[in-house]
Computed example of a mutant assay.
Amino acid sequence: MALIKNDRKMTPKQVERIQNKIKKIKHELAADKKHWGGFYHDGRGLRYLPPELYLKLNDYSGALRYFNWFDKNFPEDSGFPIFLFEWTITLFKKKKIKLAEKKALETFYSNTYLIDMFLGNELLHFDKSESSNWEYSSLVENLKYSKNQEEFNDFTKWLKNFTTTETFYDFANKFIKIETELKNEPVGKKRSNLVNEKYKLLENLK
């Protein structure tokens, strides 16, 4: 069966090619675990690749199974912004709305530009300390997902609505306030308290 992606029909051969890529990654991750005596090392970051492939196939059930596996096997790995966004899409598509809301907030926490980039909004720039490459606007300049993709029509509508809720505003405003204060706060008790407050925002989503 030909699947739809980005308004184009995908041929059975293209589908098979993507499915084989997923299988190859899983095989290599299994080999990595065996090599390291039952633990994953994955220095190449292969674990972050399957979600994009599942989304290309519109296989949200497969994506959700993968994210559940990831959560179990990499519990301390918070993922990176685009990975978290793919997780948000998957949760929404599988009608796990409350979990999708939390993952959308995690996405904003990891990169404040990504959601606006997807929605085609003006990017929110404020004076903050971007201590990680993941936080830069350049990370999402070539985002592969956008509101213009037909398969995301329902997700786009939901995300637009969610970003206008009190839940999102409250979280975003607290995060922005902390980040702004951290920008010029020297090392000391106040800075430590701000860092702890920032991490509590994330912990409260768990």
Rank of each mutant, 00 (worst) to 15 (best):
M1Y: 14
A2E: 10
K5Y: 06
R8W: 11
R8A: 13
R8V: 14
K9G: 15
T11P: 07
P12A: 07
V15T: 14
I18V: 12
I18W: 06
K21R: 08
K21C: 14
K21D: 04
K21N: 08
I22D: 02
I22N: 03
K24P: 06
I25E: 02
K26W: 11
H27L: 12
E28Q: 12
A31D: 14
A31C: 11
D32E: 13
D32H: 11
D32L: 10
K33E: 11
H35F: 15
W36T: 04
Y40A: 05
H41T: 10
D42F: 11
R44N: 13
R44F: 05
G45V: 13
G45Y: 02
R47V: 06
R47L: 09
R47W: 09
Y48L: 06
Y48E: 12
Y48W: 05
L49Q: 06
P51Y: 00
L53G: 01
Y54D: 01
Y54Q: 00
L55V: 03
K56F: 14
L57R: 05
N58Q: 11
N58P: 02
Y60A: 06
G62Q: 04
G62T: 03
A63R: 07
R65Y: 03
R65A: 07
F67C: 07
N68M: 15
W69Q: 07
D71E: 14
D71V: 04
K72V: 09
N73C: 15
E76S: 13
E76L: 08
S78F: 10
I82H: 00
L84K: 04
E86A: 00
W87H: 08
I89V: 13
L91T: 05
L91P: 02
F92T: 00
K94S: 05
K96G: 01
K96E: 08
I97E: 08
E101N: 13
K103A: 12
L105H: 00
T107C: 11
Y109M: 05
Y109L: 01
N111P: 04
N111Y: 03
L114T: 05
D116L: 03
M117D: 04
L119N: 07
N121A: 14
L124K: 12
H125T: 08
H125I: 14
K128W: 07
N133Y: 10
W134P: 05
E135T: 01
Y136F: 15
S138Y: 12
E141V: 13
E141T: 14
N142Q: 03
L143A: 02
K144S: 13
K144N: 05
S146G: 10
F155N: 00
T156R: 04
K157C: 12
W158A: 08
K160R: 04
T164W: 04
T164K: 15
T165D: 15
T167M: 10
F168Q: 01
F168H: 02
Y169A: 15
Y169R: 15
F171C: 04
F171T: 02
A172R: 05
I178E: 00
I178Y: 00
T180E: 09
L182Y: 12
P186S: 09
G188C: 09
K190M: 03
K190W: 09
N193G: 11
L194P: 06
V195W: 13
N196L: 08
N196W: 13
Y199H: 11
K200V: 01
L201R: 03
N204Q: 14
L205Q: 01
